[in-house]
Structures are given as C-alpha cells and as structure tokens.
Computed example of a mutant assay.
Amino acid sequence: MGRSRVRTEHGVTVVGIKRPGEDFTYATADTVVEKGDTIVDTGKTGAVESFTELP
C-alpha cells in the first residue's frame, strides 16, 4: 500500500471528515474532501499545526 499525497507532502494522516449537518466519517482511499468539510488528521504536532494553517 502506497503513502497518500497528504502524508508524503505534509507528514499527516487524514483520519476522517466531518461535513456540516452530517456525522463524522472515517477517511478511506476514496474519500473526497469538499469545501466546508472539517478534516480530522493526526501526526507529529509540528506537521499537524503546519497542515492546519494551509490556505
């Protein structure tokens, strides 16, 4: 299994997505993030902080 682009470029793993008005959903290889989604991620503190500050 290959590494995801987010993990390779930013050093974090997307764990799940929370869409407005919907329940939390665990992320899979097929997950598509849409505008307005809240991304739940994990990784080393510095990497997570940097990822959260991306535009």
Score class of each variant (00 low, 15 high):
residue 1 M to L: 15
residue 1 M to F: 15
residue 2 G to P: 14
residue 2 G to V: 13
residue 3 R to H: 00
residue 5 R to K: 15
residue 5 R to L: 15
residue 5 R to Q: 13
residue 7 R to W: 03
residue 7 R to F: 10
residue 8 T to Q: 14
residue 8 T to D: 12
residue 11 G to R: 04
residue 12 V to N: 12
residue 12 V to C: 09
residue 12 V to P: 14
residue 13 T to K: 07
residue 13 T to G: 08
residue 13 T to R: 10
residue 14 V to G: 09
residue 14 V to A: 13
residue 15 V to Y: 05
residue 15 V to M: 07
residue 16 G to F: 00
residue 16 G to Q: 03
residue 18 K to S: 10
residue 18 K to N: 02
residue 18 K to C: 11
residue 18 K to G: 05
residue 19 R to L: 06
residue 19 R to Y: 05
residue 20 P to E: 14
residue 21 G to Y: 07
residue 22 E to Y: 00
residue 25 T to R: 12
residue 26 Y to W: 13
residue 26 Y to E: 13
residue 26 Y to C: 13
residue 27 A to G: 02
residue 28 T to R: 11
residue 29 A to W: 01
residue 29 A to S: 13
residue 30 D to P: 13
residue 30 D to V: 15
residue 31 T to H: 06
residue 31 T to G: 07
residue 31 T to Y: 07
residue 32 V to A: 09
residue 33 V to A: 13
residue 33 V to E: 01
residue 33 V to T: 07
residue 34 E to H: 15
residue 34 E to T: 14
residue 35 K to A: 15
residue 36 G to A: 08
residue 36 G to M: 06
residue 37 D to P: 02
residue 37 D to T: 09
residue 37 D to A: 01
residue 38 T to K: 02
residue 38 T to Q: 07
residue 40 V to Q: 02
residue 41 D to G: 09
residue 41 D to A: 11
residue 43 G to L: 03
residue 44 K to T: 04
residue 46 G to H: 01
residue 49 E to A: 11
residue 51 F to V: 09
residue 52 T to A: 11
residue 52 T to L: 06
residue 52 T to V: 07
residue 52 T to K: 00
residue 53 E to I: 00
residue 53 E to R: 06
residue 53 E to S: 11
residue 54 L to K: 15
residue 54 L to P: 13
residue 55 P to C: 05
